[in-house]
Amino acid sequence: MKNTTMKTAWVTGGSSGIGLELTQRLLKDKFQVCIFAHAGIEQAVANFKKISPSVCGFEVDVQNESTMDAKFAEAVATFGTPDLLINSAGISIAKNFDEMTSQEFERQININLVGSRNVAHAALPHLKQAVQQGKRPKIVFIASAAGLVGCYGYTGYCASKFGVIGLAEVLRMELRSQKIDVAVVCPPEVDTPLVTEERKTGSPVTAALKQLGGGTMPVDKACKEIYEGIFANEFMIIVGTQLRILTKLSRILPDTYRGQIDKKLDQIIKKFAS
Rank of each mutant, 00 (worst) to 15 (best):
89 A>S: 10
242 Q>R: 15
242 Q>V: 03
14 G>L: 05
132 Q>A: 14
180 I>G: 04
79 F>N: 00
174 E>A: 09
92 S>P: 04
4 T>D: 11
106 E>K: 15
172 R>W: 01
36 F>V: 08
231 F>S: 02
5 T>S: 15
155 T>D: 04
45 V>F: 01
223 C>I: 00
245 I>T: 12
37 A>P: 00
142 I>K: 04
67 T>D: 14
94 A>I: 10
139 I>M: 11
165 I>V: 12
86 I>K: 05
38 H>R: 13
189 E>Y: 06
62 V>N: 07
266 D>K: 15
124 L>I: 05
164 V>L: 05
150 G>W: 03
38 H>G: 11
87 N>I: 04
120 A>F: 00
211 Q>A: 12
156 G>M: 08
133 Q>T: 08
106 E>A: 15
214 G>N: 03
175 L>F: 02
190 V>R: 01
185 V>N: 00
188 P>Y: 03
208 A>W: 10
23 T>H: 07
239 V>S: 00
160 S>K: 04
72 F>K: 03
162 F>D: 04
219 V>N: 04
112 N>C: 13
241 T>V: 08
136 R>M: 06
80 G>M: 02
264 K>C: 01
19 G>D: 03
267 Q>T: 05
17 G>Y: 03
102 S>I: 14
157 Y>L: 06
146 A>G: 09
242 Q>I: 05
164 V>H: 00
21 E>D: 15
86 I>G: 04
131 V>W: 01
48 F>E: 10
88 S>A: 15
61 D>Q: 10
130 A>H: 05
169 E>N: 14
155 T>M: 00
65 E>G: 05
135 K>T: 06
124 L>H: 03
232 A>K: 10
200 K>L: 11
57 G>W: 09
15 S>T: 12
66 S>M: 11
202 G>N: 11
11 V>D: 02
100 M>Q: 15
